[in-house]
Design a binder for these strands. Sequence first.
DNA 1: ATGTTC
Length: 487
Amino acid sequence: MTAPTFDAGDVTLEQVREFVWEIPQEGEMGAPARVLASEALLEEISGDKTLQQLRNATHLPGITNHAICMPDGHQGYGFPVGGVGAMDAENGCISPGAVGYDINCGVRMMRTNLTYDDVKGNEEELVDSMFANIPSGLGGGGVVESGIDTVEAVLDRGVEWALEEGYAVPDDLAHCEDEGVREGADPSKVSQKAKDRGKNQLGSLGSGNHFLEVQRVTDVFDHQVGEAYGLSEEQIVVLIHCGSRGLGHQTCNDYLRRIEKQHRGLLERLPDKELAAAPAGSQLAADYYGAMNAAINFAWVNRQLVMHRTRQVFERVFDRPWEEMGMELLYDVSHNIAKKETHTVEGDERELYVHRKGATRAFPAGHPEVPAAYREVGQPVIIPGSMGAGSYVLRGGEHSMDLTFGSTAHGAGRLMSRTQAKNDYWGGDVQDDLRDQQVYVKAQSGATIAEEAPGVYKDVDEVVRVSDALGIGDKVARTFPVCNVKG
DNA sequence: ATGTTC
């Protein structure tokens, strides 16, 4: 009996067990690679360069266990979106392409004590007011117009800065990874150009797949965990998806160029220039880590300011203080980061740069880094789906540390390019179709709506089914959109 | 993703 295989052109995968596929180690690969997917998802994943990129990622120095692709994986810059790579923090490397251009792109979910009935009939006013008050789209304009000093304070202190300035309450920090302040942030390693780009973007959604969405909880699958997360059916919640804007993009670009110049030897041994990496222990590795951590703080403050402004919008539309509407942060998850973490590898404790690019940390119950309020049930994981499908709340599963360095998927994953989406869809039609489903969408341009049409995304149900079955992120609740503001 | 084509 031989294991079933999946033939994807120049890459052949062997099935290890249900939903686990392996590209065996050969040639210059430093480890095998694994894809966590159903056959249907693997079929989609094999339609672009994801598998080649995943195999290439195993050439990165110090790659540990396997390079891993999540069920929502698709091709990205050098390293797949939906990829997890843990590289030894002493003898390995750190790679900006394995973090992603949008450093700490992520999502946060805010609870409310409103129900769908409270919001029904006010959708138009709500979506118009959110659109008018929360900056979105490409270019400048944020909730806070800041100078360079403010940007540096944000880079250094993260959400702590927002707390001091009255844009946050202590609970907001408690319900964010690292309590909203990344250790090891070094603003002096972020270029002047990046800081300049960040000055007028603090508190802005940006463009592309970023959004602000009012949703209703349609299902709670796990009532015990749902209760711990404060979620119940028909409740209104708010989802905020954005990142570090031009500042993070500039930072990624700055370090890619510097690494390409200063570490040519390593670059030439890699199968793809886009995987450019700084060797662990080098000055550039330390500098990039300091700059990336600072950009992570910037993105957290960005989401915090969008949340703060959303609370103000609700106050005006529903005419009462946000505290009375129970608008508390449930949790904030990062999608594009690298982090020094200690993991057990074949019985040994190892310090690793865990790169999660389009992947979510999903720590299980009992882990000390899960906020106290959720420690008994596990870390909340938020999986945004498309405007027509809704989203999921999961909790970190008991097998995540063994299988994925404590990670799971981050979304539905794109099925087609933005260019193809604009050929296949027209924004106005998509908007009308969504309206027929009682979903109110407002965007800067019709093109954005076409690019983000529900049909351009993979089946989020199938992505979550795989995560749940593997025990890396377990299904807790499901939501459906009510109002959506896109960039 | 992105002052949307270094």
